[in-house]
Design a protein around this nucleic acid. Sequence first.
RNA 1: GGCGAAUUGGUGAAGCGGCUUAACACAUCGCCCUCUCAAGGCGACAUUCACGGGUUCGAAUCCCGUAUUCGUCACCA
Length: 485
Amino acid sequence: MSEIRSRFAPSPTGYMHIGNLRTALYAWLIARKDPNGKYILRIEDTDQTRQVEGAEEIIYNTLKTCGLDHDEGPDIGGPVGPYVQSVRMKEGIYMEYAKKLIHLGGAHYCFCNEDDVEAQREIQTARGEAFKFDDPCKYLSIEEAEARIAAGESFVIRQTIPAEGTTYFDDEVFGRITVENSTLDEQVLIKSDGFPTYNFANVIDDHLMGITDVVRGMEYLSSAPKYNLIYQAYGWDIPRYIHCPPVMKDQTHKLSKRNGDASFEDLVAKGYLPGAILNYIALLGWSPETNQEIYTLEELIPAFNVKHIGQSGAIFDIVKLTSINGIWLRNMSLDDYYTLVKPYIEKAVHGNYDLKKIAAVVQQRANTLSEIPEMLDFFDAFPAYSNDLFVNKKMKSDEEISLESLKAARAALEAVDEWNETNVHDTLMALPEKLQRKNGQVLFPVRVAISGKQFTPGGAIEIADILGKEETLRRLDLSIKQLEG
RNA sequence: GGCGAAUUGGUGAAGCGGCUUAACACAUCGCCCUCUCAAGGCGACAUUCACGGGUUCGAAUCCCGUAUUCGUCACCA
């Protein structure tokens, strides 16, 4: 009965930010650490003006591709549904609890219109104070208020906050936060359209759904004390709070899609693996106890520990993500890698080549999927290149030596009957000795001559093998002609 | 402006009073390996933990103040 229940409670506003995903990940890990733990998905759509079509789909898809499976949610149901706040609202859940709170003295009806509130706000902000609505309605008796409602007056329900004293709440990462009650605003709990505000719906749903661990961004840190007041009024158990510092774009700006920063789906489109993204995100603001840095989702479960979540914002570093992604790519078996990468190879290579060999050669060098096509463009079209490429100090190679090597290679290769990597290798590796040259003085020119590029995935032997005898000889001929001027 | 929080190298960070001449990783720079580029191997890279005081035999680690940054102050979440 003491199972951990954590939740991911996104608003369907469009895309999946990196910060949101990290919150979802941490909450998931916390639930999965407990063998009986449950991970709940709840859709928070109480703001009817911000609904975005298809946003829910993005949430389901992202969680699915990340492997963040949930045990209860709108799509699969569960014992404490419904899991969408707008449908919970229609069932009258929030209004029922709000009324209960009123009778417990933790809230009151308010009939002030927005102009009344605005007037106060102007005065207070002019004085440089934080806004705190001094609500005349709080002195109305419940009977009086109910009579006005019965008469058809529009109303909201606001939280009632004790005038004096302090309230605190305990956070797993920030410790105890204490604030003066006098600084707390009597915020709206139920809006005039009957919908609850985020702050209220959250408390009610977390309690009704038996949530034990609340993971969320630290932008909610200042409003958290008000939550405790509500929990206390009801006499409910307060869940564990885990507030996470923001994911930053730089020192002073939060990472946000609004500023054109990458979202999860953007990163996937750029050629990053979901697993690698999750791996990296886990490390943003959290650090493991060992020096291990590469984690699969499964490995993250035992390693994860709330105690090691940091307190200051972490800057999102795409370079580090790229490095981690490269490691993930290189760690794959060739078969898995090949099926993953085949579409990317086919974007660049249409000729009749052994794509799996190409995959093998590219696996050691690509850090992202999307950079693969341009690495392979020379297979289809032998590019025009300058003879300068043959000049390389380190290889002790120049145009003259290259020409000599190329001619020798051409002749030797022409004699190869069975064209495979071993034979090409043996043939080419026999040349340096014969020509009294270093390996690089022969193989380097050959690689340039058949690829036309300064840098290539794979060396001369691998490329020649993939290109095949006919194409290799053809390119060699072209390059020899070019060198002879 | 009030309130809350944070502050260790270019980046993520470890550290929680002596074992720290501040771990590890990315990035950067050397060297090695090598048919290029990568990958891999080796090495360099904070005399110093925002600043100023204090406590202590001893502080990045505890306390106070200053500065800076972030968050919040909505019938948005």
